[in-house]
């Protein structure tokens, strides 16, 4: 039995090494293939710096926007019952389940030169597609579900008893959220924000469609990686890829830390929730 277990563990780890670890190591090996000098030069070239700036800018707009949206949506969906709730959740999930290429295409068809609003935008000298606003919109689209998806499952299992108690004591909606709801979901919220940021900085398919095939002014870091890779400048491509890889690894570390905390909070929450329910037998959920 132990022999079978050892063999299967070995097979499983070998599989993960082949499909996960080797590609991860290859990124750093390729980036440093010509030494640190070439690496530094690649990540500090003016094209790379421009790409980093645009990537950070679009993340700085997309993440706070989807944070506000995520909080509002989670509050409406978990604190109230209304018709179409399931449909609303499915629609919020949509960007997560379609190809990122579609996430870019929808904006090209709406705001592009041949899109529904294209002529009007052109007449007013506003360019969205093949420009920075398009990148930002595509980033917002693909990162839309992240905060909601982290908050809703957690807020759904928490009772509303304490929020209702706070309300009956005269607290405003914002005060209830700030002092009662938020402390219970803060780790999930932080985790959602981290995922949202990582995805915003790494988005490729949607950004590639709205940036168009004529590259130049609107290049994000992943697009820059593609361009230099296709120009056979492997060191530059992998050097810039290490920046995104390090971001991803930091995300994984933070996730592991937050998972442990969330579990602890969830247990505490569950215990105190049961206490409140037990203390108010004829309470709000009766």
């Amino acid at each position: 039995m132990t022999a079978a277990r050892l063999l299967l563990t070995f097979v499983g780890l070998a599989w993960l090494a082949l499909i996960l670890l080797l590609p991860l190591l290859a990124i750093f090996a390729q980036a440093l293939a010509k030494g640190w000098g070439a690496y530094i030069a690649a990540v500090t070239s003016s094209e790379a710096l421009d790409a980093i700036r645009l990537t950070l800018l679009s993340a700085l707009i997309a993440v706070p926007a989807n944070l506000v949206f995520g909080l509002a949506a989670a509050w409406a969906i978990t604190k109230f019952e209304f018709r179409g709730r399931t449909l609303l959740l499915a629609l919020i999930d949509l960007p997560f389940s379609v190809s990122p290429v579609i996430g870019g295409l929808v904006f090209v068809l709406l705001y592009g030169a041949h899109g529904w609003l294209g002529p009007w935008l052109a007449a007013h000298d506003v360019q969205i597609i093949f420009a920075k606003p398009g990148i930002v919109l595509a980033t917002i689209f693909v990162t839309l579900p992240f905060v909601v998806r982290e908050l809703v499952p957690l807020m759904q299992v928490q009772t509303t008893a304490r929020e209702e108690a706070a309300f009956s004591l005269g607290a405003s909606g914002w005060q209830i959220f700030r002092h009662v709801t938020l402390p219970n979901v803060r780790w999930a919220l932080l985790y959602g924000l981290i995922l949202c940021t990582a995805r915003a900085m790494g988005e490729f398919g949607a950004a590639s469609v709205v940036a168009g095939s004529i590259r130049g002014r609107t290049v994000t870091l992943p697009l820059h990686v593609e361009i230099v890779f296709n120009e056979y400048d492997a060191v530059a491509a992998f050097a810039c890829a290490t920046l995104l890889t390090i971001t991803a690894l930091v995300t994984l570390v933070l996730k592991t830390v937050l998972d442990a905390r969330e579990r602890r909070t969830a247990h505490v929450e569950l215990a105190s929730g049961q206490l409140i329910t037990a203390a108010t037998p004829a309470g709000s959920r009766a």
């Binding site: 780890l13 993960l16 996960l20 670890l21 080797l22 590609p23 991860l24 290859a26 990124i27 090996a29 390729q30 990122p100 995922l195 990582a198 900085m201 790494g202 988005e203 490729f204 398919g205 992943p222 697009l223 990686v225 593609e226 890779f229 492997a234 491509a237 992998f238 890829a241 995104l244 890889t245 971001t247 991803a248 690894l249 995300t251 994984l252 570390v253 996730k255 592991t256």
Partner: peptide, 26 residues
Amino acid sequence: RRIVDALIDLPFALPAAVGGIALTAV
């Protein structure tokens, strides 16, 4: 085990294009 567990999510966290060129390199 914990490191392996954390690493499982790498394809979620790593930008698709970076995963693509890394696989091509291997």
